[in-house]
Every structure is written in structure tokens, then in C-alpha cells.
Computed example of a mutant assay.
Amino acid sequence: MKKLLVLLGFLGLALGGQAHAQTPDAEVRAPIVQYFKGHATGDPVEMRKAFLPTAHIEGNRNGAFSTWTVDEYVAGFKGPAADESSRKRTIDAVDVTGTAAMAKATLVHGNITFTDYFVLLKVNGEWKIANKVYNVLRAEGK
């Protein structure tokens, strides 16, 4: 019986610690959800809300390195994509340490899958995307 109580005590501590860790996790997810909203609507104003003003977006696309300031990046959004209803977006991982965090997201756009890695920072009490790098994978035969 004593071993069971000790085990339950450890489980309580573990679950309590986990519940506490979810609060910053949920806060860090907010700018990623905002980013998804910007993607879904194609609205540069909505997209811009997710980022710090100094953010950069970088990756390799069509075999070439690309880099944009956040202003250049959001300027490319001109309304929802024609296939928006079939697109899928997920937050796959979040890791938080104090006021710094990282997140991984997957965006499936037809035969193209983007894997986004975000570096986030809590500034003036609010989480924002500081930088984003991405990978593009095109399904073979499509």
C-alpha cells in the first residue's frame, strides 16, 4: 500500500509538472495558429500579426536558396488559395525555455509538403515568430 501511495505521489508530481508546462506551450502555439490563419485567408495583415518586425523567412525552393524579410514574405499573400479547403496544417512539436521557443509545423498543399521550423521569442509579454526556415517536399509523380 505504501508503495502505491508513493507511486501515486510521483504520478501527481509528474502530471502537475506536465500541466504547468502546457501553459507556455499553448501560448507559444498562438502565433503559429495566427500564421495558419494568415495562410488560410491569404491576408497579409493576418499573416504579419504572427511575426516580429525583424523576422526573416529562409529556405530552399525549386533548388535555390530564398530569403525574405517578413514584409517581403507577407506581400506575397493575395487572398486564399484556390485549393484552400483541401490544405492541412499541423503543429508537430513545441519546445519552450523561458522566453525562447521553437516549433515545428507541417503544411500539406496538394502534392507539396512544407515543413516549417519556427524560432519564437516572448517580447513584451507576447510570443511572436522571430524567424522561420522551411523545407519543401514535392510528391513524386505529381
Rank of each mutant, 00 (worst) to 15 (best):
L120T: 12
W127C: 02
V94R: 04
T99N: 14
N111P: 15
V136H: 06
K132G: 02
S85M: 06
D95I: 12
R89V: 03
D116F: 07
T106I: 07
A103Q: 02
L120A: 07
F114H: 01
L137H: 15
A93E: 12
V108Q: 08
G125F: 02
A103Y: 03
A82L: 08
E126R: 11
N135F: 13
F118K: 12
A82V: 07
W127M: 03
V96G: 14
G110A: 01
I91Y: 12
A101P: 06
A139N: 09
G125A: 08
N111E: 01
E126L: 06
I112P: 10
R89N: 12
S85W: 08
H109M: 15
N111K: 09
D83I: 08
V119Y: 06
T97L: 01
A101T: 01
A101K: 09
L137G: 01
K104P: 10
V94K: 01
A93M: 05
H109I: 14
A130M: 05
V94G: 05
Y134V: 08
K128C: 08
F114I: 02
E126A: 11
S85D: 15
A103D: 03
G125E: 00
K132A: 11
V136A: 05
Y134C: 12
R87C: 03
K104F: 10
F114V: 04
K128Y: 09
N131P: 05
A100I: 14
E126S: 10
Y134D: 10
D83P: 02
F114R: 07
A81E: 08
K132L: 12
V108F: 13
A93R: 15
W127S: 00
D95S: 10
V119M: 11
D83N: 15
T115I: 03
E84N: 08
T90N: 09
T115K: 15
A100G: 10
T115C: 06
G125Y: 09
G125H: 11
I129H: 05
D116Y: 08
W127Q: 07
K132H: 07
H109Y: 09
D95A: 07
K122P: 00
L121K: 12
G98Q: 01
A103C: 05
R87Y: 13
V119N: 05
A130Q: 10
S85E: 15
V136C: 11
A100H: 15
E84P: 00
A105E: 00
V119H: 07
A105K: 12
V108R: 03
V94D: 02
F118E: 09
E84F: 02
K104E: 00
L137N: 10
N124Y: 03
W127F: 02
G125W: 05
S86M: 01
K122L: 00
V108S: 02
A103L: 04
W127N: 02
D116P: 09
T115Q: 10
Y134T: 11
V123K: 11
K128D: 08
K88E: 14
Y117Q: 11
T106W: 06
V136M: 03
I112Y: 06
K128L: 11
D116H: 06
A81S: 09
S86F: 08
K88H: 15
K128Q: 13
D116K: 00
F118W: 05
V133F: 04
M102N: 12
T113M: 11
H109L: 13
K132T: 00
F114Q: 05
L121E: 14
E84M: 14
K122E: 11
K104Q: 14
I129S: 01
M102L: 04
T97A: 13
I91A: 01
D116L: 09
K88F: 10
